[in-house]
Each structure stands twice: as structure tokens, then as C-alpha cells.
Design a protein around this nucleic acid. Structure first.
Length: 419
DNA sequence: TCTGGGGTCCTAGGACCC
DNA sequence: TCTGGGGTCCTAGGACCC
């Protein structure tokens, strides 16, 4: 029987900022999204003041500052680094650690043969001491139960940050006290459906017939129910699966009306997307670009997107070219653009693709060719240099002919109008 | 008039997550 | 003036094929 622990950092982004500003302990802190748009993390004190996730900063700024709230622009490099440190500490407690998100890690505690509550306390203490980040630990025989235990560890002071939901006793006592919307995988829509059927607590959900559950919530819901009952449907995954898509999207600080300005932004997005592709050693075969006006403003709302196949590439210059061609089709004069983005799909492994693209060459040589291109791209950072190896480009173009013409550009003729 | 059946592939859209 | 960004999975239904 596996035993999962979920270690989840408390108010992670805020806690990271406090590591370097210890005087802010006890002070309400929020971390803001891109362009300081809205609150994406809140310290406990900020939550206690009633600040909600996603609250637009411009709406609450005056009031919040008056209440002594301190705010930070988000710093993902810092958070990523702190996350890695958490991971390193956890690896000392179990050889099997799965980073689930930037601030959450699953551990396999099976076979440790010790008091797991004690073990949870030790984990918290080690992380706090070495990274200054407070965490909570939830324990269960399925991931879903570990998540739920973590929720209790966070919300109910009597657990002091560590909760074990493995025993039937604990479930019988606690399930009826938790609203079913707190369960991992039950969002707003599913919660509403279940409530319409008269279910309201986790106990109701755990006691729901699995087949019936599948009818109402599809197979995902059936798995949730089984996991609540202690039947494991999600194992630990120690190797991170290959990325399926990469996107770079932004709302603009100030609305954009000119083509030249939009072009500049979209070029930047495509460049960043290319950076990410090279980091992961991938090529993209399809692209989606979109532009939007501000849906929060009265008047006409315009939103449009184009999806099309591209030659398999990670080269930023080619990505920029394609993105601009796409967005040019979408651009309409007279709109105030508020948000745009570039999404890359149908990603393939660059090394494997190289071997397929140069079939007449030996694999060694294909790999060297790819490495040469990687070198060019990474040396110039932003992919502003095209692969100069003679013959390469011709071959890549030839390969494109073998791709099925799956992608067609879809352009709505008329802007959609919003009341 | 009667109007198969089984299969695959693809996509849009919904839902959920952090 | 100012309202985030980046992902994954599942399903229904259309297109197409034999």
C-alpha cells in the first residue's frame, strides 16, 4: 500500500519575498501579476484583510496601502530557485519525490516504518530551517487524500501543519466536515452538478456510487471518488513528461493601437517561445497567434486567433516571421489591443527529429548537425542567426512537404460584439 | 420507400489545476 | 489609466474510410 505525502508551501510567493525581507513577517504582503495587474499571492495577514485571489490591484491599492499592505511584482526566477531548494531538502527524506507544481511536491513515504506524523514534522522543520519557507504536510494512501489532508493541515490549527488521513476513523470523522468543492479535481462546475444531486460534503462524494459518478463527472470524477475511498488511481510520476505546448501571452500595460507596436510585442513573444523551445530541446510544428481587446471595457470587443502549421523549428527568427504573418491577418485598424499571445503546439524532440530529417546521414552526423544549430542559437541567445550550415534549410523545407496539411488558418470575418 | 456498422482521426470546447 | 499566465486532460461530434 503506497503512502503519499504532499508538502505544500504556505503562500509560496509571499513567503519567498519574505525570505529576503524578514521584517515583513506579520505584515500583510501581496505579490502581483505581470504589469502589477492583480493579486496572485497573499500572505495570511492579507487574506485576513479580505484580499481575494485575482483582485485587481488598481481597485484595492489605495485601500490596501492604507491598511499597511506591502506589494511586490512577481519574480519567477526567485520562486523557481526556492522551489528547487525545497526539492533538494525533500530528497533527503525520500528517494521518490515528484515536483507537482512550483510550490507542491509529492513524496512516497512507503516502507519508512516510522511515525509518519513525526516524519512530517521533521520535513517541515528542515525546510523551514534551510529555506525559511513555511510548509504544511498532508498524508494519505492516495494523492487525492494527501491533498485533502494537506488542506486540513493548513486550515485547522489543531493539526499544527501535519495531517494524516489514512485511517478509516479519521476519514469518518473529517469527511463530513469538508465541503466537496475542496477536493482536488472538483471545480466550480462539478461542485454545482453534485450539489444539484444533493451532495455537499466530502463524505457524500466518497460515498457516491462510482458508476453514477462517472456518468455525472466523466472518468475524471470517477477517479476522484475512488481515490477518496482509498483506491489509488494516480501513481507518483518521477520523470516529467515531455511538454505538449508552449505559450507566451501578455496583457499590455497600456493598450496598443498601432501595427508597428503590436508587431514589436508579438516578435518578443515569438522570441521568448523560441527560447523555451531550445531550453527543452524541442521543435514546434504548429503555431497559434491571437489578439484581443479589453473585455472589461464597454463597447466592441474584438478577439481573433489563427492556427497554422509551420516547418518544424526552434529558430526564433522563423517563429517571428510566422507569428507576424499570422497576426497580420488578425490585425484590424481602430481597435485598442489589450492582450496578445503566441502558442506553439505539436512539439517534437529535436534530436529525434534530426535523425528523421537526415535519413541518409548517420545518426552521429545528424546529432552533430543539430548540436551545431543549437550552438548557434544558444550563442546568440535569441536565435537571431539562422542555421548557416549549408544545405540544412533546404532539407528542412523538404521535410515540411511530408507534414499533413492539418492546419488551416481560421479568421473570423467580423469582430464579435459584446453587449 | 428502405438509408449499415464499425472504425479512426481530428478539433473545439469545457473543465480543472497551480 | 489600471483586471495574470501557463499548463493538462476529457468528450462529443464531424469527417472520412471500408
Amino acid at each position: 500500500m503506497p503512502v503519499f505525502a504532499l508538502c505544500d508551501a504556505n503562500n509560496f510567493y509571499c513567503s519567498c519575498e519574505r525570505v529576503f525581507a524578514p521584517h515583513l513577517r506579520g505584515v500583510p504582503v501581496v505579490v502581483l501579476s505581470n504589469n502589477d495587474g492583480c493579486c496572485i499571492a497573499r500572505s495570511q495577514e492579507a487574506k485576513d484583510l479580505g484580499i481575494k485571489m485575482g483582485d485587481p490591484w488598481f481597485k484595492i491599492e489605495r485601500w490596501a496601502v492604507g491598511k499597511g499592505v506591502r506589494h511586490f511584482s512577481s519574480n519567477y526566477v526567485l520562486y523557481g530557485d526556492m522551489s528547487r531548494r525545497l526539492y533538494e531538502v525533500l530528497q533527503r527524506f525520500s528517494p521518490r519525490v515528484e515536483p507537482y507544481s512550483i510550490d507542491e511536491m509529492f513524496l512516497d513515504l512507503d516502507g519508512l516504518g516510522v511515525d509518519l506524523i513525526d516524519r512530517g514534522r521533521a520535513i517541515r522543520a528542515a525546510i523551514l530551517q534551510e529555506t525559511k519557507i513555511p510548509t504544511c504536510v498532508g498524508i494519505g494512501e492516495t494523492k487525492t487524500k494527501a491533498k485533502l489532508a494537506n488542506f486540513l493541515a493548513k486550515k485547522r490549527p489543531e493539526y499544527a501543519g501535519v495531517c494524516d488521513l489514512r485511517s478509516p476513523d479519521a476519514c469518518a470523522r473529517l469527511y463530513p466536515t469538508i465541503p466537496l468543492g475542496e477536493v482536488w479535481g472538483i471545480g466550480r462546475a462539478s461542485a454545482a452538478k453534485l450539489q444539484a444531486l444533493g451532495l455537499s460534503t466530502v463524505a457524500d462524494l466518497a460515498g457516491f456510487d462510482v458508476t453514477h459518478g462517472r456518468d455525472v463527472l466523466t472518468v475524471t470524477g470517477a477517479r476522484v471518488i475512488m481515490e477518496l475511498q482509498g483506491q489509488c488511481c494516480h501513481d507518483l510520476s518521477l520523470i516529467s513528461p515531455q511538454r505538449k505546448g508552449i505559450s507566451v501571452t501578455r496583457t499590455f500595460g497600456a493598450s496598443v493601437t498601432e501595427w508597428e507596436e503590436l508587431k514589436e510585442s508579438v516578435s518578443t513573444f515569438a522570441t521568448r517561445a523560441g527560447d523555451k523551445l531550445r531550453q527543452h530541446g524541442l521543435l514546434a510544428c504548429a503555431m497559434t497567434v491571437f489578439i484581443q481587446t479589453n473585455r472589461f471595457l464597454p463597447g466592441e470587443f474584438y478577439s481573433n486567433a489563427a492556427t497554422f502549421g509551420i516547418e518544424p523549428t526552434q529558430d526564433s527568427l522563423l517563429l517571428i516571421r510566422d507569428a507576424l504573418r499570422g497576426v497580420k491577418l488578425l490585425f484590424r485598424n481602430g481597435f485598442k489591443y489589450w492582450k496578445a499571445g503566441v502558442m506553439l503546439d505539436d512539439l517534437i524532440d529535436a534530436k529525434t527529429a534530426a535523425a528523421q530529417m537526415f535519413p541518409s546521414r548517420d545518426p552521429e552526423k545528424s546529432a552533430r548537425l543539430m548540436a551545431a544549430m543549437d550552438g548557434i542559437n544558444s550563442r546568440f541567445g535569441r536565435g537571431m542567426v539562422r542555421p548557416a550550415v549549408s544545405g540544412v534549410e533546404r532539407r528542412w523545407t523538404a521535410k515540411a512537404e511530408f507534414l499533413s496539411p492539418r492546419y488551416t488558418t481560421r479568421i473570423e470575418e467580423l469582430p464579435t460584439v459584446r453587449a
